[in-house]
Nucleic acid binder design. Structure first.
Lengths: 343, 343
DNA sequence: CTGAAAGCGCTTACAG
DNA sequence: CTGAAAGCGCTTACAG
């Protein structure tokens, strides 16, 4: 039997109300009594029961995050960051894979999760709007990360795609490249539209024309980046540089360029977006834009806690700054001859 | 106000005991009543309160994992796998970074965590034995993953390092290499001793001598792998292959070999251990041993649940099988000329 | 500053 | 099969 607040009270010769007050930082406890109670807590080895506390306060001091099938580093930054932020503010973090949600009868899942946490970070694209609505209807604050729920009023966080793309393309322009192609994605894709907008803005700002035949749509995977690049390489003159809307497509592009017997960046420079793990290890290493998942998760927790603490401000989308990560593929650095880039 | 069990009972015209029985799968409810209660639950949109339930049952249906500063893919496999296994058995998963634990006054941290979960997976090397003892004293089942707590009786999980090393070295031997060096670690390192034992066994099984000057100790990082290899390359004759006790050291070794103007695997073959993310992306890609973090986490949850469910069997260490991942650095495949390995 | 008591929302013997 | 009631371990007005 674990010691309860009663054991502490008995030992200290006070009522449980007093113990509780001390525990909850109330000042309405005399110094003497406080000392005695603290000793008693030590003596009996007391730890407050979270369920009892949760029941009494109707709050459980826990946040939940539903995580997606992200690639490794994104995933770990997401969880690490959310956990660290939660911890800092005294919250605990519950995690759920989005597949757990999708498979179960939503009701049940919702139920369990909804009564176990005070707020939810939804970091997956695979959860339907209905789920969000259910959670909201239940009075659980939600914050969405990495997707764009248009038809619903909910707080969300996203990387500053436009500025990231502007930085990437401006960097290429500053290298002296003028004929810069882009591999984009469907306009409906959360990030594609904004990254393309950034591309256009950078060209515009530097007085360069947008050449429609240099903008090709891919599907955000390696294969489509490869295919798009094959098309781009048939344009005359051949583009001097390619900006891919994500790293997967950039890596596909790299393969296509190589296959043509051309070199990156000597013949064609290349910049991606996201800074996924392989970006550092491909050869040449890929210049790209970091979307700062750590920062995004931090902001997510922060926004969520505002809601948990009762804010009823209008829902909003918070943009997290993106940063250019300069490596070899843009032509800034000599391409290493061996594995040095990973040593 | 969220609906409670009373609202359901009222609507269904039964007592809350009956609702509770239905919810908990008791069969002692007539079909008619059950149907009525189920409807009522739907109608009022009822979800059982986890805190109340936890308090009444003195169990909260939650497992906790303290995670380490692992590299990306290990980390995500650990969390994903633990979450999936927990979910399958109806448990929720709470996560904590080990730094959260280390910094706080242990008491508080322990307190919060201990009353919020029914069992703990400790996947970090950075937690002192005292912490484990405290948790155990509190009656919370613990299972340790990825470390070797000698002085304490606790269940643990580890990869089958010996057999992994045997496979790796045997593979090199089957390639025809005879003069096989090893970069190992301090004997006190959890994995080093076993991996070295596997190396020795493989040589022994194939009737090959163990040449002391070909076994050099590193520190499980790239730098020491690099340094150890520089030494190895001064041996005469030069080793035909190197088995590094982990991938970081193997990658360091790769750099050292290259720097000497030698080629991997043509001049010196190389095998690592762990299958970290870069292993796929270095050039040539690294043959290595997968320590199956997903499987380890699965077994961890399973062992933990046995304890949670009351098992008082002797504590034990469960070994999770390791598997050889054949890539280019052992000489099995032609080394790709470009980024094809990542495409 | 402190205590007695009600209440948070469940589960589960105990009767019937 | 079903209900009344006690109890899980806290918090928090309400008095004093």
């Amino acid at each position: 039997m674990r010691p309860t607040i009663h054991a502490v009270a008995k030992r200290a010769g006070v009522s449980i109300a007093t113990v509780s007050r001390l525990l909850n930082g109330s000042t309405r406890v005399s110094a003497e009594t406080a000392a005695r109670v603290r000793r008693a807590i030590e003596d009996v080895g007391y730890l407050p029961n979270a369920s009892a506390r949760g029941l009494a306060m109707s709050a459980n001091g826990t946040l939940a995050v539903i995580f997606p099938k992200l690639s490794g580093p994104f995933f770990s930054e997401l969880i690490r960051s959310a956990e660290a932020s939660a911890r800092e503010t005294g919250y605990h973090l519950l995690v759920y894979g989005d597949s757990s949600i999708a498979e179960d009868a939503q009701e049940r899942m919702l139920g369990l999760l909804a009564t176990k946490s005070d707020g939810l970070i939804l970091a997956s694209e695979n959860i339907g709007l209905d789920y969000i609505r259910d959670v909201q209807r239940w009075g659980l604050p939600v914050v969405v990360l990495g997707r764009q729920p248009d038809d619903i009023s909910v707080d969300s966080i996203r990387p500053d795609n436009v500025n990231g793309a502007v930085k990437a393309v401006s960097h290429l322009i500053e290298h002296g490249y003028r004929r810069i192609a882009m591999i984009t994605g469907r306009r409906t894709h959360l990030h594609a539209a904004d990254r393309e907008a950034g591309y256009r803005r950078a060209l515009y700002d530097h007085g360069l024309p947008i050449i429609p035949e240099l903008v090709i749509s891919g599907a955000f995977d390696e294969e489509s980046g490869y295919a798009a690049t094959q098309l781009l390489l048939r344009r005359r003159p051949v583009p001097e540089a390619i900006f891919a809307a994500n790293d997967e497509m950039a890596i596909g592009a790299m393969a296509a360029v190589r296959e043509k017997g051309l070199r990156v960046p000597a013949d064609i420079a290349l910049v991606g977006f996201d800074d996924i793990a392989p970006a550092r290890y491909v050869h040449p290493s890929l210049t790209t834009v970091d979307q700062d998942m750590y920062g995004q998760a931090q902001v997510a927790v922060q926004m969520l806690l505002e809601r948990v603490n009762g804010s009823d401000a209008e829902t909003e989308t918070r943009l997290v700054p993106t940063e250019l990560v300069i490596r070899e593929s843009c032509g800034c650095k000599d391409v290493a001859r061996d594995v040095a880039s990973v040593v």
